[in-house]
Amino acid sequence: MLLVRTEPVSDFKYYHRIATQIANGGQWGDTYTTVGYPIFLAPFYWCFGASIWVAKALNLVLSTINNLLVLHILEKTGIRETLRQRTFVLYVLFPMNIYYNSMLASEILFTTLFLLGTYLYLTDINYKYVYIGLITGLNTMVKPYFPLFALAIILTDFLGHEKLWKSMKNGVVVLLVTGVIIAPWLYRNYKLIGEFTYVSNNAGIVLYINNNTQNKLSGWMLAEDVENSVVNRPDYNLANSTQKNIMLSRDAREWIMGHPREFVCLGLKRLSKTFIQAGDIDYAFQGSGLLPFLQVIMFRFSEFVRMPVFLGGVASIVIHTLLYSYLTVGNRLTKRSARFVLNFDGGKGRLFLIITFLMFAGVYFITEGQSRYAFPTVLSLCVYAVMGIEGVKKLRG
């Protein structure tokens, strides 16, 4: 952090501005995007000053909490100790978990709440689904799609041999508490806009600019550049932000339904942007003034570590998913496959890591892909990269 003094850019700059605005008694943002992260920063800005160094110091605290949560989560995965140690060291020293502390991105806070929810889910405590609902509600203020966490719990409970009605009940409890937590913000948005509005209004624009015929590379583009763009229509310009969000979402869904092949191709490109292509360099050194050759060296080293873990982790997750599916459908596994799964029948935690990874990947497949969106999946990828290597060794042995 001291060597690479990054400056906020794009969304990161927006978070800093809104947090400063809240700390100074101003409006808590508008409905364009979620403001959970600026709201988190604001009281610290109020106490210590609106400095990016305050946010970076908070990142260090959150990262330390994340490491402790990962340590305890790994203890609940049923993986033997040597593999847990390798996974933990890999996670703690993983490049993204180091240099993201220099950014004012919401990913670290989001991951802290996600890991806390995961830890609670794998822990036997009273009222845990109520606590998970509280965390899910708070994290929905950071990323609006996070209520899907309840679906991950339902699937894991059900596939973990819980009865369907009990699995559904647990998920409903999480969703009900989530609704209670975000209700004040929904009311605030209703008073601000004049009609029901979700925690943010940017889902439509994200879906629209990422799903259209002109978007060949599945990256960011101007909404005005879409053919016959809805943003150029008179009714759009007269609409409020919620109505605009509805228009954009409707047109995006219509395009997806009418272009299924193109949609799948764009979705695969989005996953590639998230888990394969190197994109962090666009903001990892922003404004740091670090010499270009040092930037290249540091980034190449980061990719030297990241790429094998991400590719190996994704491949291992796909294989384990197929084996889990085969077990669920066929109720049997060959002895050779069972050795690769590494005692899968005791791994509810490992199953949950698979399902939550698929949850994130599914969101990115539909909406938008960026390298930083992979951040909350680093634990799953590290676990399954290590397990994949161990499985290959067992098969060869």
Score class of each variant (00 low, 15 high):
4 V>D: 15
15 Y>P: 00
20 T>F: 01
28 W>N: 13
30 D>Q: 00
30 D>F: 01
32 Y>G: 05
33 T>K: 06
34 T>C: 13
41 L>F: 09
41 L>W: 10
44 F>M: 05
45 Y>H: 09
47 C>P: 04
47 C>R: 12
51 S>W: 01
57 A>V: 14
60 L>Q: 05
60 L>I: 09
73 I>M: 13
77 T>W: 14
77 T>F: 13
80 R>H: 14
84 R>E: 06
99 Y>K: 02
103 M>K: 06
106 S>T: 14
106 S>F: 07
110 F>Q: 04
111 T>F: 14
114 F>I: 11
115 L>Q: 07
117 G>R: 05
117 G>T: 02
123 T>G: 05
127 Y>W: 15
127 Y>D: 15
127 Y>C: 14
129 Y>H: 12
132 I>C: 07
132 I>Y: 06
135 I>V: 15
135 I>G: 11
139 N>W: 02
142 V>R: 02
143 K>Y: 11
144 P>T: 13
145 Y>F: 10
146 F>E: 06
151 L>N: 04
151 L>T: 09
154 I>H: 02
161 H>A: 09
162 E>W: 08
163 K>A: 09
163 K>W: 03
167 S>N: 03
171 G>F: 06
174 V>N: 05
177 V>T: 11
179 G>L: 08
181 I>K: 05
186 L>F: 15
186 L>V: 14
187 Y>R: 04
192 L>P: 03
198 Y>M: 10
204 G>V: 12
206 V>C: 01
215 N>D: 10
216 K>L: 13
217 L>R: 10
218 S>H: 08
218 S>K: 07
219 G>T: 12
221 M>G: 06
225 D>P: 04
226 V>A: 14
232 N>P: 06
237 N>Y: 09
239 A>T: 15
242 T>D: 08
243 Q>G: 08
247 M>V: 03
249 S>C: 03
250 R>Q: 15
252 A>P: 01
256 I>T: 02
266 L>V: 00
267 G>S: 09
269 K>S: 07
272 S>F: 11
276 I>K: 05
278 A>V: 12
279 G>W: 07
286 Q>I: 00
288 S>I: 06
288 S>K: 06
290 L>Y: 08
296 V>H: 12
297 I>N: 00
297 I>H: 01
299 F>M: 07
301 F>H: 13
301 F>G: 09
302 S>H: 02
307 M>N: 10
311 L>E: 02
316 S>P: 12
316 S>R: 12
317 I>H: 04
319 I>N: 00
324 Y>Q: 09
328 T>A: 15
329 V>P: 04
332 R>H: 13
333 L>Y: 03
343 N>S: 14
344 F>V: 15
345 D>E: 15
347 G>T: 09
348 K>T: 01
349 G>M: 00
353 L>A: 02
359 M>K: 00
361 A>W: 00
362 G>T: 05
376 P>N: 09
377 T>H: 03
380 S>I: 08
384 Y>S: 04
384 Y>N: 12
393 K>S: 08
395 L>E: 14
